[in-house]
Design a protein around this nucleic acid. Structure first.
Length: 808
RNA sequence: GCCCGGGUGGCGGAAUCGGCAUACGCGAAGGACUUAAAAUCCUUUGUUCGCAAGGACUUGUGGGUUCGAGUCCCACCCCGGGCACCA
C-alpha cells in the first residue's frame, strides 16, 4: 500500500493540537537544562508562507525536537510582527483596515505552520499589534525618554516620497527606500530620535563574545564604523583680524604638514558668520543652495566630479607651521560626521587629491615609503616616513600621529559612522508614541499607568504626505489636557517604526501574559539568553542591531540579566528559483509551499529543504529533487509495513547492529551541528543497508532506533509508524538513542597501497597491524611487485589503519 | 575601491585532523514487471585513450610546501553578499 501522506499527516496534526500543544510546553520549574530556540518571527504578509520561512522554521523545529529528546527543557515559541508599512500599504491598496488584513493573514500563517508539523508552544504566541503587547513597547520608550535616550530634534532626515514617511539610515539602501526602492529625499522635520550612538562602543565590543556568523559581525562593525583620531583647531584670519577658529577631525595627524586647505560642509553653521567677512558671499550662498537642492543620490554619486567654492578673504593657520591655508566649502564633506570640517591633505587622501587637482590647489608630499620625494599622480594613502614636516622629518608615520598631536596640543577623539536612530514615522499603523506636547511644559511623558495608549480607530489612515501622521486629523484623540499643568495640550501623532516591536519580543515569550511586568525577572534569568536564533541575513544592521541596543539598555535598567540577547545566530541561505535567480512572482519562479505539501506532504517538504545543501548556503530549488526524499519516505513506509507484517525478529544481526550504531553516531553529531543535509544522507544510507536483503527480519529495537533518529526531521511518518509498531505514546517523547562504541569497532580495514602518492592497489587487513606487517602485505601484492620491478623503495610511510605509501 | 563568503561530475552537494576525491540525492542510459504507460525494482554513469587487461588526466587558473594537497602558503581570475566621499 502506498503511503498516504496527506491523510496521515492531517491525522497527527489534529492529534498534536488536541491538548493545547501540551507536548511542546516547556516546564517552568524543571531541573532539566534549558534551551531557548527562536525564529525571527514573521511579518504575516498576504502572500502567506514562502519556502524561505519553511527552511528557517523547519531547521529550528528539528533542533527543538532533537533537544527535547535529548532531555532539554525547550522553549520554542512563535508570534507575529504585524505593525509596519507592508500591512498598511496592502490595506490601503485593498481598501481594508490594517487590523483586519493582519488578522486574516495571521490565520493563514497559523494554518500553514501547523500543517508543517512545527512544534511551537502556541500558548505563548504574541502579536506586536496587540495593545497588551505594545503597552510594553511604549513602556520601554518611556524609560528611554526618562534616561534622555529618546529626544526630539529638528533635522534633515531621509524621506521616502512614495511611503510618505521618514526613514532611518539603516532603512536606506543605495540612496533608495528599503521597502519600495524610491530614491530617498532630504526633508527637514521635527522627529523623535533614539540615542543608539550612546551604545556604539558597547555594541561594538559586545560582538566579540557572540557566536554569530563572521559576515554579520563584520557588517555591524562597519556600520558602527569606529575611528580613532585627533581634533585639531585652526585659527581663522581675515586680513589681520582674528575671527575665531575651526576644529577638524583627522585620523592622520601625521600628515598635518601636508594640509594645504580646509573644507567645510555646506551645512556647517560657522559659514553664516564667516560669510560676513568674505568677498564672495553671494557666490557662497548660491553654492550652499545648490547643495541643499541635491538629493542624497546626487550628492553621493561617486561618478560625479567634486564641486566647491572658496571663502575668499579668510584664511586658516596651520598650527604646526603657521602656514596660511585657503578655506573652501564642498559637499564632499559631510556635516554629520566628525566636526563637519576637514583639513585637506591632497597628497595623501584620494578625495582631497581630486579636489586639489580640479581647483589648482597645492599638493605637498609629507609621507613617503622610501623617504624620497615623488611626482604624485595619485594620493598615497599608505604608511611611510615623514618629509617636508619640519622637526618630524624621517619619523615613522604611525609614531608621528601621536607626536604631532601632542606638539600642537590636539585632543584625542573617537568618532562613529553610526548615527542616532530616527524613531518616528508619519504613518498610522504603528505604536503611538506615549508623549503629550504641552505649550508650557514641553514634551510630557504619559504616566505608566495610562499605558497602553491605544491606536485610535480612524476613517482614513492614508499618509498625508505633509510630514504629519494621519493621527493628527483625529482631534478628539489629539487634544488632551497636559498631565503636568492641566492646560490644553496635544498628543504626539507620529508612530513608532516597524522595528520597535521586534526589539524585545524574545523577552515577552518568556512571560507572555504578565500584566504587571514586561517579564518576570525570575523567568527571564531562567531562559535568557536565546541559545539559538535563526533568520535571514537581511536584518544584519536593522533588527539585530536595534534589538541589541534595547537589550543593553534594559540590562542597564535592571529589566534583563544578560548583556546580549542572542548568543548563537544562524542565517539560513536564500532559496533561489530553479533558474538560480531570486524567487519572485514577477519572475515566475516562485514555489508555493502549500502546493508541495499537498502533493508530497509536509515531511517531504521539510526533508527536501534540509537536504538541498548546507543551511547557511544559498541554493536553487529543483522541482525534481523533491522526488528523491519522497521516494525515501515511501521506501521507509514499505520496509516498516513489511516488517510489521512479519512481526520483526529479536535475533541480533551484527551487520545491522553496526549500521544502526554508526547511523546513531553520525546523525547525532550532524544534528548537533545543524548539518541536516548529511544527517539525511546518513539515514538514507542506513535505509539502503536495511532494505538490501528482502524478507529478512530486522530486530525491533533497530527499527525503533531508526524511527527515533528520523523523528525530528520527519515528525509525521515516524509518529504513524511508531504507533503502528504498537506504541501508545508519541515517538517525540522518546529518549534520543545512544550508540554503543563497541559495536562501531571494525576488525578489518581496506589498506590503501600508494606508490609515490598514487593509489595503486588495496587489500583487506586486520585493524591495528604494525608497519612491518603492512609493508609485507603491500610488497607481496602482484600488482605492486610489477610496478616496483627495477625500483627500490626509498622510503615507506604507513598511516595506521589507513594507507601505506611507497616512495621510489 | 574596501570588507566578508564561495568556485568540486550533466545538476544539488559530500569529503570532521593534510591520507581511497565525487558519499547521498537528482537527472540520464539500459534492463525487469506490464497489452501499454505511470509507479516500483535491478544495472551503468567524472573525462579521456583502449576490443580488453589496463593507462593517463581531473576539485576556477598558475606556482609553492609535503612521501602525499579539494584541504596549507603565494599570486591571479570569476561568482554571490555587504559597505561606499565617514576625513
Amino acid at each position: 500500500m502506498k503511503y498516504n501522506c496527506d491523510k496521515i499527516e492531517k491525522k497527527w496534526m489534529q492529534e498534536w493540537s488536541k491538548n493545547n500543544y501540551a507536548d511542546w510546553k516547556p516546564t517552568e520549574n524543571a531541573k532539566k537544562k534549558k534551551k531557548y530556540v527562536l525564529d525571527m518571527f514573521p511579518y504575516p504578509s498576504g502572500d502567506g508562507l514562502h519556502v524561505g520561512h519553511v527552511e528557517n522554521y523547519a531547521a529550528t523545529d528539528i533542533y527543538s525536537r532533537y533537544s527535547r529528546m535529548k532531555g532539554f527543557n525547550v522553549l520554542h515559541p512563535m508570534g507575529w510582527d504585524a505593525f509596519g508599512l507592508p500591512a498598511e500599504n496592502y490595506a490601503i491598496k485593498t481598501k481594508q483596515h490594517p487590523a483586519q488584513v493582519v488578522e486574516k493573514n495571521i490565520k493563514v500563517f497559523r494554518r500553514q505552520i501547523e500543517r508543517l508539523g512545527l512544534s511551537y508552544d502556541w500558548n505563548r504566541k504574541i502579536n506586536t499589534t496587540d495593545p497588551k503587547y505594545y503597552k510594553w513597547t511604549q513602556w520601554i520608550f518611556l524609560q528611554l525618554f526618562k534616561h534622555g535616550l529618546a529626544y526630539e530634534k529638528e533635522a534633515p532626515i531621509n524621506w521616502c516620497p512614495s511611503c510618505k514617511t521618514g526613514l532611518a539610515n539603516e532603512e536606506v539602501v543605495e540612496g533608495k527606500c528599503d521597502r519600495c526602492g524610491t530614491p530617498v529625499e532630504r526633508k527637514k522635520l521635527k522627529q523623535w530620535w533614539l540615542k543608539i550612538t550612546a551604545y556604539a562602543e558597547r555594541l561594538l565590543s559586545g560582538l566579540d563574545q557572540l557566536d554569530w556568523p563572521n559576515s554579520i559581525k563584520e557588517m555591524q562593525k562597519n556600520w558602527i564604523g569606529r575611528s580613532e583620531g585627533s581634533l585639531i583647531k585652526f585659527k581663522l584670519k581675515s586680513g589681520d583680524v582674528n575671527i575665531g577658529e575651526i576644529e577638524v577631525f583627522t585620523t592622520r595627524a601625521d600628515t598635518l604638514f601636508g594640509a594645504t586647505y580646509l573644507v567645510l560642509s555646506p551645512e556647517h553653521p560657522i559659514i553664516n558668520i564667516l560669510k560676513n567677512h568674505a568677498d564672495n558671499a553671494k557666490e557662497i550662498d548660491r553654492y550652499i543652495n545648490e547643495a541643499r537642492q541635491k538629493s542624497d543620490m546626487e550628492r553621493m554619486d561617486p561618478t560625479k566630479t567634486k564641486t566647491g567654492v572658496e571663502i575668499k578673504n579668510i584664511q586658516a593657520i596651520n598650527p604646526a607651521n603657521n602656514q596660511l591655508l585657503p578655506l573652501w566649502i564642498s559637499d564632499y564633506v559631510l556635516v554629520h560626521y566628525g566636526t563637519g570640517a576637514i583639513m585637506a591633505v591632497p597628497a595623501h587622501d584620494e578625495r582631497d587629491f581630486e579636489f586639489a587637482k580640479k581647483f589648482g590647489l597645492k599638493i605637498i608630499e609629507v609621507i613617503s615609503p622610501d623617504q624620497k620625494e615623488h611626482q604624485l599622480n595619485a594620493a598615497y594613502t599608505g604608511p611611510g616616513y615623514l618629509l617636508n614636516s619640519g622637526p618630524f622629518n624621517g619619523l615613522d608615520s604611525e609614531i608621528a600621529q601621536d607626536k604631532i598631536s601632542l606638539f600642537i596640543g590636539a585632543k584625542k577623539s573617537v568618532f562613529y559612522k553610526m548615527r542616532d536612530w530616527v524613531f518616528s514615522r508619519q504613518r498610522y499603523w504603528g505604536e503611538p508614541i506615549p508623549i503629550i506636547k504641552c505649550p508650557k511644559c514641553g514634551n510630557v511623558p504619559l504616566s505608566e499607568k495610562d499605558l497602553p495608549l491605544t491606536l485610535p480607530k480612524v476613517k482614513s489612515y492614508e499618509p498625508s504626505g505633509t510630514g504629519e501622521s494621519p493621527l493628527a486629523a483625529i482631534s478628539s484623540w489629539v487634544n488632551v489636557k497636559c498631565p503636568k499643568c492641566g492646560g490644553p495640550a496635544k498628543r504626539e501623532t507620529n508612530t513608532m517604526p516597524q522595528w520597535a516591536g521586534s526589539c524585545w519580543y524574545y523577552l515577552r515569550y518568556i512571560d507572555p501574559k504578565n500584566s504587571k511586568q514586561l517579564v518576570d525577572p525570575k523567568k527571564e534569568k531562567k531562559w535568557m539568553p536565546v541559545d539559538l536564533y535563526m533568520g535571514g541575513a537581511e536584518h544584519a544592521v536593522l533588527h539585530l542591531l536595534y534589538a541589541r541596543f534595547w537589550h543593553k539598555f534594559l540590562n542597564d535598567s535592571g529589566v534583563v540579566s544578560t548583556d546580549e540577547p542572542f548568543q548563537k545566530l544562524i542565517n539560513q541561505g536564500t532559496i533561489l528559483g530553479a533558474n538560480n535567480e531570486k524567487m519572485s512572482k514577477s519572475r515566475g519562479n516562485a514555489v508555493n509551499p502549500d502546493d508541495i505539501v499537498k502533493q508530497y506532504g509536509a515531511d517531504a517538504l521539510r526533508l527536501y529543504e534540509m537536504f538541498m545543501g548546507p543551511l547557511q548556503a544559498a541554493k536553487p530549488w529543483n522541482t525534481e529533487g523533491i522526488n528523491g526524499v519522497s521516494r525515501f519516505l515511501n521506501r521507509i513506509w514499505n520496509l516498516f509495513s513489511a516488517q510489521i507484517k512479519i512481526n520483526g525478529g529479536e535475533k541480533n544481526n551484527p551487520t545491522t547492529a553496526k549500521t544502526i550504531n554508526q547511523t546513531i553516531k553520525k546523525v547525532t553529531e550532524d544534528l548537533e551541528n545543524l548539518d541536516y543535509n548529511t544527517a539525511i544522507s546518513a539515514l538514507m544510507e542506513c535505509l539502503n543497508a536495511l532494505t538490501a536483503k528482502e524478507g529478512v527480519k530486522i530486530k525491533k529495537s533497530h527499527l525503533e532506533d531508526f524511527l527515533r533518529l528520523l523523528a525530528p526531521l520527519a515528525p509525521f511518518i515516524t509518529e504513524e509508524l511508531w504507533h503502528q509498531m504498537g506504541h501508545k505514546t508519541s515517538v517525540h517523547k522518546e529518549r534520543w538513542p545512544k550508540y554503543n562504541k563497541k559495536m562501531l569497532r571494525e576488525k578489518e580495514f581496506d589498506l590503501i597501497i600508494q606508490i609515490n602518492g598514487k593509489v595503486r592497489d588495496k587489500v583487506k587487513a586486520m585493524v591495528d597491524i604494525n608497519q612491518g606487517e603492512a609493508e609485507r602485505m603491500a610488497l607481496n601484492r602482484e600488482k605492486i611487485k610489477k610496478i616496483l620491478t627495477g625500483n627500490h623503495p626509498k622510503k615507506i610511510i604507513y598511516i595506521p589503519n589507513r594507507l601505506i605509501n611507497i616512495v621510489i
